[in-house]
Design a protein around this nucleic acid. Structure first.
Lengths: 315, 315
DNA sequence: GCTCATTCATACCCGTGGACTATAGGTCCA
DNA sequence: TGGACCTATAGTCCACGGGTATGAATGAGC
């Protein structure tokens, strides 16, 4: 009845993901037999079968599904502990701020200035720009201390505060018939394909907390009605605009993002009743660092000056 | 550059808590030299010194403080993964509901009935009663699936929903001069000692999220002004009432709790402006079980019928 | 100021357990 | 029915985690 070890959890995750011992072993850089033994050991320790295996097929049991979920979290937590401690031990620790491109609504520069003005003893900030969903992952595994994001995002393990709320605009080819109108109505764009963000998870796995658990980056591409055809995959705003300009679909972008991407062949139009986009500052729930606190306060103060300041009190 | 292992984290936690290698080794049931080596190994892996040690004194470095904090969380996560998987693998899994005594405001019976009525395929509920702060710990390390608590509590890693909000009442000896009044005012009790709950953490380490991080059970004993003298330590409501009846202090209890403890030598009186007590249902953020969802929904529905139903929308 | 107690680090040894190779055994498909 | 594929078992080995003995450093006490 020994303790579960991180190595074992890694092994199990690999097998559960591959559903194949040999491939998993290869991925882990080890031979297959010790992997089989390790899993068997775990099963006997837990007193529960994790994998239903025949010689032709490996399937997860209910316990296995639970463990896969929980093991990912636990391994992340261990890695996060290591990274955070390691970073805190650097000669001059940095406050790592993760943002996604366009995710800061232009606030970052001011926030950094306010943060630096807070006090002389704080670690200098270091900004890293991550792709789809990356900032959240970076917060979770300790690579970043604080992040600027668009909601909704997977907030498990994170605390957050909404900074500004701004409308989203429809992105149309300038030649599109609807581009002649000043405002659009919700039904106008029905049936138009909407480009999907590369790396974004499958949409809205509705969950009883009311949060859209697995949904990432849905903000920018826009949650369209279920019958919306899926457009091409895009990897960035430039690509998105290109796709729209070529008439392969319409999209939705936060207003502050559109201001940075004015093009003659693209028109931005407000849509009545379209859900707005919120910029939030997020940090690990477990954070107790004064630097993070100072950054959050700076963000709050800067946002309070912003015309789109979130009157929101609730998170 | 190997990976941090759970065993090592346990070792580090022991040393960091004891600040003494020999005692920590004893506590871990091992000899001191291998423990020293293990810590040294961790330090070299992390590239950061964790402990400042002379032959006479061991102190945590900044990195060490971070790691202590994070390691506790990570070890909890691993234990939780093991427990949850193990429980999910039982022949007939149970939904373990943790409550603290008096923490359910009498709702539990109805909630359980509603839960059982939800569907025939759900795991049968099993109620465990835990002391101060225990339910939260049980949620965190996987011993429990869902809990009924009083806010405020340390909500890190948990989601929660407020069910009912009820006033707290002052607990006075029946012979107390103020017991003659129907209502009290905030200043009336100034200077009276307030009993402290055994096991409750030191009060209100104010934190920038606005949550009172480490505070547990402050609800019942009541957050009094800072200049309030500390009364005796008590381990339960009965003890608390005994202490009050003997004139050794005054206390505050949620109204539903007082109804279960009517005594001739104790008087309960409302206090104007005293912050109320909220009963919340809480569950691990990582939970994806249908059973937990059903329980939360049942709790929500039952609370909606309750006269003190939380009109609260926010969590 | 010397000694002693205390405590962490080093040196060395040993046993266990995790990993490797080889191979058996079961299942699906052509 | 033979071959491809995949997991489990058997047997071997060595690295590493842990133990004991002891050294080295520091602060306290007389």
């Amino acid at each position: 009845m020994n303790e579960l070890e991180v190595r074992e959890l890694r092994y199990f995750i690999a097998v559960a993901e591959e559903l194949n011992f040999s491939r998993a072993a290869q991925r882990l850089g080890m031979a297959q037999p010790p992997l089989s033994k390790a899993i068997a050991r775990m099963e006997s320790r837990l007193g529960a079968r994790l994998l239903e295996r025949t010689t032709r097929q490996v399937r997860l049991t209910a316990a296995g599904r639970v463990l896969l979920d929980q093991a990912r979290i636990a391994v992340d937590a261990v890695h996060a502990a290591a990274r955070r401690a390691s970073r805190a031990g650097q000669p001059t620790p940095r406050l790592v701020v993760a943002v996604k491109p366009g995710g800061d609504a232009g606030l970052l520069r001011e926030i950094l200035a306010a943060y630096r003005g807070t006090g002389p003893d704080l670690p200098p900030p270091e900004v890293v720009v991550g792709g789809s969903g990356e900032p959240v992952a970076m917060l979770r595994d300790g690579r970043a201390d604080v992040a600027l994001l668009r909601s909704p995002f997977d907030g498990r393990g994170l605390d957050s505060e909404t900074l500004v709320v701004e409308p989203r605009l429809a992105v149309l080819p300038a030649a599109h018939p609807l581009a002649g109108r000043r405002r659009l109505r919700p039904g106008d764009l029905r049936g138009e394909p909407v480009p999907r963000w590369k790396g974004a998870l499958p949409s809205a796995t509705a969950y009883y907390t009311g949060r859209d658990g697995a949904e990432a980056d849905g903000d920018q591409a826009g949650r369209a009605p279920a019958d919306t055809p899926e457009g091409p995959l895009v990897a960035g705003v430039e690509q998105l605009l290109e796709v729209v300009a070529l008439g392969q679909g319409v999209a939705f972008l936060a207003r502050s993002t559109t201001r940075l991407h004015q093009r003659p062949d693209i028109a931005y139009r407000p849509v009545d009743g379209l859900s707005p986009s919120a910029v939030v500052v997020a940090w690990p729930e477990t954070s107790r660092s004064a630097a993070v606190a100072a950054f959050v306060r700076a963000a709050h103060d800067v946002a309070a000056q912003h015309p789109d300041h979130a009157a929101a009190l609730a998170r």
